[in-house]
Design a protein around this nucleic acid. Structure first.
Lengths: 156, 156
DNA sequence: ATCAATATGGATCTATGATATCCATAATAA
DNA sequence: TTATTATGGATATCATAGATCCATATTGAT
């Protein structure tokens, strides 16, 4: 289980938009050259980001992309969900099998347990993951990097 | 990004081993019937669990599988890593590109930042996820389920 | 009005990995 | 010795990621 390369590209592209001079659009040519990815492939990814309101796109001369909202308001979770989709991390394919009935039978209670107990744990894991990814934004990662570099510089 | 069905099968299989009478091995026939998965496919999964020391396997008559250690000592992380592998959730495919040099150039410092700042965030996410998955074991999920059912029963 | 530059979306191709099956072999208990 | 069971190799199938090409639409500049 791994995040796709598209997520990698999307995050790096947003970082580049954030770092480059504001007020100017950044074209797909510059983006793809910076990331080392083909224009055609990267443009698909940028298109998804646009559809989800993370970037704005302007066609025509001097067109290109820019952030649609401030970098503080673009979380890692936002980006990941656009690219990877919003399915759950885990879906029990076994809900109607004997496995779960068996669990219920060991109890005298007759009511159905509404959710697979394994799925429940995995959903908990997903929530923790999402919380973390929501606390980290394009801006926060830059702040962190600058802090780190300043600290290094001071040591000299 | 999703966990594979194999992980689903593995977790349910272990749950079944844990619930069934101890002292007896559980054959692949019973397991596959319980989970509703083919014997051939499930046996591959059980084989992986055996290679990693999570279950023991005995061939021959009355053979089958049993837990190799107590259910408290089998974490979700253990099982997931056996099935899904141990690669990182995120690997920056861009470490040598202009993207990162650009970041460094914006600083006067000349030393190299050792890791992609995006990858750093994602590794943090992975650590959080792993911690959670390590705190949940086959046993803990059963305890939780029993507690839940008892609670339901008491309400009647 | 025209042209060049740029983004968009459809179609398509390829590579990879998940899912799944079959079979020959080895190991074990009765 | 035999029936039973697990193991591992080979292979097939399918879905998805990754990637490319092209026709079209949109915009700014001339």
């Amino acid at each position: 289980m791994q995040f796709s390369k598209s997520t990698d590209y999307a995050l790096h592209a947003l970082l580049h938009l954030c770092l480059s001079d504001h007020g100017n659009n950044i074209g797909i040519k510059e983006l793809s050259a910076t990331l080392g990815v083909s224009e055609s492939y990267l443009s698909k990814i940028m298109s998804k980001l646009r559809q989800d309101g993370i970037v704005r796109a302007v066609p025509g001369m001097n067109g290109g992309y820019e952030l649609a909202r401030s970098a503080e308001q673009i979380t890692f979770l936002d980006v990941i969900q656009v690219i990877e989709g919003r399915q759950h991390l885990f879906e029990c394919s076994n809900s109607k099998s004997q496995q779960h009935r068996l669990l219920v039978e060991t109890e005298t209670a007759e009511q159905e347990c509404p959710q697979c107990i394994i799925e429940a744990v995995m959903d908990g894991a997903e929530q923790h993951l999402h919380q973390y990814l929501q606390e980290h934004t394009i801006q926060s990662v830059l702040d962190e990097a600058f802090k780190r570099c300043d600290h290094e510089a001071n040591k000299k």
